[in-house]
Design a protein around this nucleic acid. Structure first.
Length: 247
DNA sequence: GCGACAG
DNA sequence: ATCTTGTCGC
């Protein structure tokens, strides 16, 4: 079975799904940093993806949207795509990838040119098994990815205390630094970051083949005047409202 | 032990 | 995520 066949599925039991996460969490560790992006200059197109839900009668459907954001063409080549499909996997914290990746992979497959980076509306490494939706999707498609969530999940930080000024951030640690032994190590899972002055911070973490610092830099560079980076804000907006975009 | 917990 | 009116604030 190929990686994509094993990860892009929505028919696992929770037990099986957890076993898959553990398997790939371990495989993730073997990826060389040489394969990571080293500079924002190497990125041409970013795909911001999100899903909105609605119910028919007893059936649940999702509308996935991918906004293609072209950095080098100064936004002139930006556009978006959507798909509508049934949702099979139930929502459960730590298993979001199995609920949404099938749809997200499908909408990305419709993009004419494979994007250089994916921005995901959900956590990446900030996950009990370091396998949040952003990691899951990036790994499945072998496309670098970033997790950008609107709410905290696991980890310890004083994000609620940061001033709402663009660029301000707070580290999110795996263990509570307050109760950390002198010789004990900790794990930096991500950052809570204010991307737009006046707005509540978002939670940024590594997805796939990208460092936390570069992920942070890219998020700051693509945020215009909303709480989230513009590609994600638009994907959220467009998946919810089927409207026309500039061509 | 119990509850909380991304979207 | 989604169901939803008026309302507080920049």
């Amino acid at each position: 079975m190929t990686i994509i066949q094993e990860l892009i599925r929505d028919d696992y039991s929770f037990e099986r799904a957890e076993a898959i996460q553990i398997k790939y969490q371990n495989l993730m560790k073997k990826i060389s940093k040489n394969e990571y992006f080293t500079s924002i200059k190497h990125i041409n197109t970013i795909a911001g993806v999100d899903i909105s839900y609605f119910k028919d009668n007893n059936n649940e459907y999702g509308i996935a949207c991918a906004v293609i954001w072209n950095l080098k063409e100064n936004l002139k080549e930006s556009h978006f795509l959507t798909t509508k499909d049934p949702i099979k996997f139930p929502y459960k914290p730590s298993f979001l990838g199995f609920r949404e990746c099938k749809l997200l992979a499908k909408v990305i497959s419709k993009v004419p040119n494979k994007p250089d980076l994916i921005m995901c509306d959900g956590h990446g490494k900030i996950h009990p098994r370091r396998f949040g939706e952003a990691v899951h999707l990036g790994y499945a498609l072998d496309i670098p990815s970033i997790g950008i969530a609107k709410n905290p999940f696991i980890g310890f930080s004083d994000w609620h205390k940061i001033e709402r000024v663009k660029g301000n951030k707070s580290s999110i640690w795996a263990k509570n630094p307050k109760y950390l032994g002198k010789e004990e190590s900790n794990d930096l899972l991500g950052y809570a970051v204010c991307l737009n002055s006046g707005n509540k911070p978002v939670f940024i973490s590594e997805g796939y083949k990208i460092s936390l610092n570069l992920a942070l830099k890219i998020c700051l560079a693509t945020t215009i005047n909303h709480r989230q980076p513009e590609p994600l804000y638009l994907a959220d907006y467009l998946s919810r409202k089927d409207i026309k975009y500039y061509n």
